[in-house]
Design a protein around this nucleic acid. Structure first.
Length: 550
RNA sequence: GCGCCAAUAGCUCAGUUGGAUAGAGCAACGGAUUUCUAAUCCGUAGGUCGCAGGUUCGAGUCCUGCUUGGCGCGCCA
């Protein structure tokens, strides 16, 4: 419907351009659903946006355009020119419910678009060091990354999800040391704080205990490197479990150590050196990031000979590009924003447009309990783990709350609200929409009533304004998906669902579906079923369940 | 000092990429239940879109400056 109308406007514009009234080759006309009823079913501001380049008053253009469009080949009941030059379109009712048929035909595929045209995108997210449990902040990045990947997939991109595991370097050695020291303490019956810089958390004791059970008392200092990997693997398995409980899955885990094993980091450094993008100074190797707009150059190899994270990160991103991805999306915590210029520099040094990489910074999360901020300090061990949160409020609510807000503004996560099994909780408001439609079918089954054979003429019976509004909103989904993918804002779909529920529930309350008039019943049932299908599709993209009963 | 993000109703936030009279939920107040599930619905009230300029037919949205809050600015990871 919307596409048809857009096409009609475009061809009318083409005719006007041929007559020299407006410049040709204009952009896609914007069609929107007006906020106010009197402004029609769809409206466009093309006349306003063309006024300047055409050098004509907007109303004159609008009038000429309206004349060309006429009744839009039978699609429109009328066209009005309003305000400064808006064109308001009033649709003939017959076509309004075409979308229901389309949803029936496309089923789970409705809402998918091909805006991405199969472009290959790698979304890298979480990538937390395997040195401890995930906390709540990681959870937001995890859910955002997972949902964004789904959104992009729905928008026609070929998406892969990846977790980069930092399993080489000092912090992993520290991890192994921490496990080893706790292990010794366990054997010797002591319990005292570990030296500065090591991991103090209780979970280390658990791993030490497991180590003793598995290997007995004979592990020595020399085994620390191996214990490091052993512990990291155990922690990674836990992280994987925590993410799985939230419904977050990855297509691959990329281990940093494989870059070193394959000599990829050294090759990368040699390459930078050969192209004079890296230089020695004060015994260290520096990356000329200032050449690409960074404030200062950055160290790749410390004077002690250790390679920095940056060195490995460059090799890692080189590997991503080598694997043929057209776009790279990295999802980081907002506290890493200072790292962006050097990674952009790296992409440019690798011979790509820096825009190939986009970094999404996920802002901080505060937990709210009884209206109070829960203090979170990783250092003091006072952070709330992601697993605790998921267990407490459930996966659906956790995901929904992380997806309700724009990722780039700080989030207050109200734990009490998320837990509440009541109308205050927005998760249920949306899921209930799905369950309610299911309950219609349950009632029909109970009464031994079958759905009447569908006939498209029945749609003429849908005369309530709410019915037209809902159908029209359902038709918006493909656009919403496309916009969400383009702007990389998964929360648009959450908002869409909440808005749909805000139309559906009042309608459901006010009008009955199972009425005696079979033709009306059939039409309403199909509309409601379309609502259910759309709800299910969007919940699916967001990684939430669509319950049949609640 | 420099940089990044934010600022919209009492609270938590949307706002279709610059459009028409700024919208939801919660909280408050008043109402609806013989119903396909009330985890629902209807109504009332609530606003100088942080402040000041600018851009134009038109700004919550774009630009500049300020204010406030959060986060960064290592041969840490």
């Amino acid at each position: 419907m919307k596409e048809k109308l857009t096409g009609i406007i475009k061809s009318a514009l083409g005719e006007l351009a041929a007559e020299g009234l407006v410049p040709g080759g204009g952009a896609e006309p914007q069609l929107s659903i007006p906020k106010h009823e009197g402004h029609g079913d769809y409206a466009t501001n093309v006349a306003l946006s063309l006024a300047k380049s055409a050098g004509k008053p907007p109303r004159a253009i609008a009038e000429a355009l309206a004349e060309k469009i006429g009744d839009g080949g039978g699609l429109l009941s009328r066209v009005e020119i309003a305000g400064p030059g808006f064109l308001n379109f009033f649709l003939r009712k017959a076509g309004l419910f075409d979308v229901v048929k389309r949803i029936e035909e496309q089923g789970d595929a409705f809402g998918r678009v091909d805006a991405g045209a199969g472009r290959r995108v790698l979304v890298e997210f979480v990538s937390a060091n395997p040195t401890g449990p995930l906390h709540v902040g990681h959870g937001r990045g995890a859910v955002q990354g997972d949902a964004l990947a789904s959104v992009l997939a729905a928008a026609g991109y070929a998406v892969a999800r990846e977790y980069y595991v930092n399993d080489a370097g000092v912090q992993i050695q520290n991890l192994g040391r921490s496990t080893f020291l706790r292990y010794r303490q366990l054997i010797e019956g002591r319990d005292e704080p570990l030296p500065e810089g090591l991991y103090q958390g209780d979970y280390i004791r658990d791993h030490a205990r497991a180590l003793r059970e598995e290997r007995g008392d004979g592990v020595t200092e020399d085994d620390v490197p191996e214990i490091s990997q052993w512990t990291a693997q155990r922690i990674l398995a836990e992280i994987d479990g925590d993410l799985g409980a939230l419904g977050v899955r990855f297509d691959g885990y990329f281990h940093e150590h494989t870059l070193y094993d394959a000599g990829a980091v050294d090759r990368c450094l040699d390459d930078l050196r050969a192209r004079d993008l890296a230089y020695e100074q004060d015994g260290a190797l520096w990356f000329r990031t200032t050449k690409f707009g960074d404030e200062k150059d950055r160290v790749l190899v410390k004077s002690g000979g250790e390679k920095t994270y940056l060195a490995a990160d460059i090799a890692y991103h080189a590997d991503k590009l080598r694997r043929g991805y057209d776009e790279l999306i990295d999802i980081w915590g907002a506290d890493h924003h200072g790292y962006i210029p050097r990674m952009k520099a790296a992409i440019e040094a690798l011979g790509k447009n820096p825009d190939t990489l986009s970094v999404m910074l996920i802002q901080m999360v505060s937990l709210l309990r009884a209206g109070e901020r829960v203090s979170m300090s990783t250092r003091a061990g006072e952070f709330v783990t992601l697993r605790d949160l998921t267990d407490e409020v459930g996966a659906d609510a956790t995901r929904f709350f992380f997806l309700m807000r724009r990722y780039d503004s700080q989030l207050d996560f109200d734990v009490d609200l998320a837990k509440e099994q009541s109308n205050k909780n927005p998760v249920y408001y949306v899921q209930y929409m799905h369950a309610r439609v299911c309950s219609i079918y349950a009632k029909m089954a109970q009464e031994g009533r079958a759905a009447p054979a569908p006939s498209d003429e029945d749609f003429a019976r849908l005369t309530e304004p709410e019915e037209a509004q809902i159908a029209q909103f359902l038709a918006e989904l493909p656009d919403v998906v496309a916009r969400a993918a383009q702007s990389r804002e998964a929360h648009r779909l959450t908002t869409y669902l909440s808005d749909l529920a805000g139309m559906f529930h009042p309608y459901y309350f006010k009008h009955r579906v199972l009425v005696d008039d079979e033709r009306l019943m059939s039409a309403r049932l199909r509309l409601c079923t379309a609502v259910r299908q759309v709800t299910r599709n969007v919940l699916g993209i967001l990684g939430l369940s669509a319950p049949e009963t609640m």
